[in-house]
């Protein structure tokens, strides 16, 4: 296709680029300008040029650490939950594949707010804990507003994003590879470890990035399922803009957030490259 359409048609990229510039690049520039300003006496923003806001961030590392901790943990658990399911759908489900995939996606397409809110009832003491008490499993189980609830919320909301790339990687895996491995006498576990797992690694990394990035900006899950006791970057930003109305400090925190995100992505991409390289050279062929 490339050479067939005249060069003038490259102009058709213009609207998208213009849109990006006007509604993304320009606002981010404004964000930077605001981040070197000062807070107005009634809140908001007053002009200025100072890096104090960035220095102040040093005193506000807690939400950053907290966010990193929970996002990494949440992503890891999501991976553990998603991988076997992706494997089952891709390798074992046969003709039901599409239906099973659609079933993973359906909940994802209904209001996240409502689904997450439903969990507050399921995890509250009249929900799951009450059922378990009735069965005599546990006496006083507290689930709502715990780190467990936050991780559960992450897994629940981001499972499809983790599952799809892994599924794709596993789906593309040629069954003859596994057959070959078995013909060569490798056991089931060995085949999984030496063939399936390495070849699906790029999907795993892709899925992890897909989950990690939006989770880091999460606002609703810590509010609804964490009871506001765990403070994420998203909550810190919302508070700085909507409660304390310290826009310059909020802007500086947002700037730091973007940097952090970029760093994580660079590392993630590098890992993905190495893994896919390893997958190529390490394959039994």
């Amino acid at each position: 296709m490339p050479k067939l359409i005249p060069r003038a048609s490259t102009l058709s990229t213009a609207p998208a680029v213009a849109w990006f510039v006007v509604f993304m690049v320009a606002p981010l520039t404004v964000l930077f300008v605001v981040s070197v300003g000062v807070r107005g006496p009634d809140g908001g923003y007053a002009g200025g040029f100072t890096f104090d806001n960035y220095l102040e961030l040093g005193n506000r590392l807690a939400p950053i650490w907290n966010t990193l901790k929970f996002s990494l943990l949440g992503t890891a658990v999501t991976l553990l939950v998603a991988y076997p399911l992706a494997y089952y759908i891709a390798v074992k489900a046969g003709r039901r594949k599409l239906v099973l995939l659609a079933l993973v996606i359906v909940p994802f397409w209904t209001s996240m707010l409502i689904r997450t809110y439903a969990w507050t009832f399921l995890l509250g003491s009249n929900g799951l804990p009450a059922v378990l008490r009735e069965w005599g499993v546990v006496d006083d189980l507290r689930l709502l507003n715990t780190p467990f609830a936050i991780v559960l919320g992450i897994v629940y909301n981001y499972l499809p994003l983790m599952l799809l790339p892994i599924y794709v990687a596993l789906e593309r895996l040629d069954p003859s590879l596994r057959a070959a491995s078995k013909d060569l006498g490798a056991g089931r576990l060995a085949t999984f470890r030496q063939v399936t797992l390495p070849l699906s690694a790029p999907g795993v990394v892709g899925g992890c990035l897909l989950v990690l990035i939006p989770v880091m900006g999460e606002y609703l899950i810590p509010v609804l399922l964490g009871g506001g006791r765990s403070y994420f970057l998203g909550n810190a930003l919302a508070d700085l803009f909507l409660q304390s109305r310290n826009w310059p400090l909020g802007a500086a925190l947002a700037g730091a957030f973007i940097l952090l995100m970029t760093a994580i992505l660079l590392v993630g991409t590098a890992v993905a490259r190495r893994l896919s390289g390893a997958a190529t050279t390490g394959s039994p062929a």
């Binding site: 794709v168 897909l210 893994l275 062929a285």
Partner: peptide, 25 residues
């Protein structure tokens, strides 16, 4: 889907794996 950062990351990552699959089959 949705918040997809993997496209740039996973995009190139997938190709070698495809190549492997082709080579093997």
């Amino acid at each position: 889907s949705r918040e997809d950062p993997a496209a740039p990351a996973a995009g190139p990552a997938r190709t070698p794996q495809e190549r492997t699959a082709e080579k093997v089959s």
